[in-house]
């Protein structure tokens, strides 16, 4: 799948944007790119990719969010270093954007860059989040995010899951909703996430054609982090 230098990850609150963004930086890194992650989430100060700054740095991925020292503050502040990321043509840049159209609004500030260069804008969808089990509602969200960001979506990320209770059946049922929404929006499903091999269905077998995307979960509650450290990738 050919992808652009700039990838912007949007979606509803709690749809899995950060997990997708963080995992996508890993994929780019493994493909040999220099990668920078922009944490643009100023909607909610919990479970943001900036919490992984040290870990990602150890894996060669730079993270930029707000002014150093204020990462955990509940402030709508962004670092000017984001412009440095955008101006560095050697860098693949992944934007992890805050939830809903209100989160996507922050993208407006960088519009001149997105106008000058082709980008990917992906909508992460988990139809198991309340209100998004209906393709119509997903379409409405997609349009609202496009309006707020003044950008055009280029793909849908199918992140149908029920957390630890996900099984093949629930994933398959969820994916049907996402695929229907993608058809309505006339957009491709660019990534289809899975967290365990046993969730792969026969229909998924051609992994490349289905854009299967293995997701390692980083944003875990403290009771799931047995060692208090993150696994090596």
């Amino acid at each position: 799948m050919p992808t652009k230098r700039i990838t912007i990850i949007t979606g509803a609150f709690g749809s899995g944007k950060t997990e997708v963004a963080v995992n996508y930086t890993q994929l780019l890194k493994r493909a040999g790119h220099n990668v920078g992650l922009v944490d643009l989430d100023i909607v909610n100060p919990y479970f943001r990719s900036r919490e992984l700054t040290d870990f990602l740095k150890a894996h060669g991925i730079e993270v930029v969010s707000t002014q150093p020292g204020l990462e955990m503050a509940d402030l709508p502040a962004l670092s000017p270093r984001i412009f440095a990321f955008l101006q560095n043509e050697e860098l693949r840049v992944v934007f992890d954007v805050g939830g809903y159209p209100v989160g996507a609004k922050t993208l407006g500030r960088f519009e001149p860059y997105f106008r000058a260069e082709a980008y990917d804008l992906w909508l992460v969808v988990n139809p198991y989040r309340p209100g998004y089990d209906d393709p119509e509602e997903i379409s409405k969200l997609a349009q609202a995010i496009e309006a707020a960001s003044r950008l055009r979506l280029t793909g849908i990320v199918d992140n149908a899951n029920l957390g630890r209770e996900t099984d093949r059946q629930s994933r398959e049922e969820g994916s049907k909703v996402v695929e229907e929404a993608a058809r309505m929006l006339n957009l491709p499903v660019v990534l289809k996430t899975y967290t365990a091999e046993e969730l792969i269905t026969p229909a998924d077998r051609d992994r490349a054609a289905n854009n299967l995307f293995p997701l390692q979960l980083f944003m875990r509650p403290p009771w799931e982090e047995v060692t208090g450290e993150l696994r090596e990738i």
């Binding site: 709690g14 198991y128 989040r129 309340p130 089990d133 957390g163 209770e165 049922e173 969820g174």
Partner: peptide, 15 residues
């Protein structure tokens, strides 16, 4: 969908 993924705060509100 019978089961939904909810943040604790959302679960309190809908509950």
């Amino acid at each position: 969908m019978e089961r939904v993924m909810m943040k604790g705060n959302e679960a309190l509100a809908e509950g």
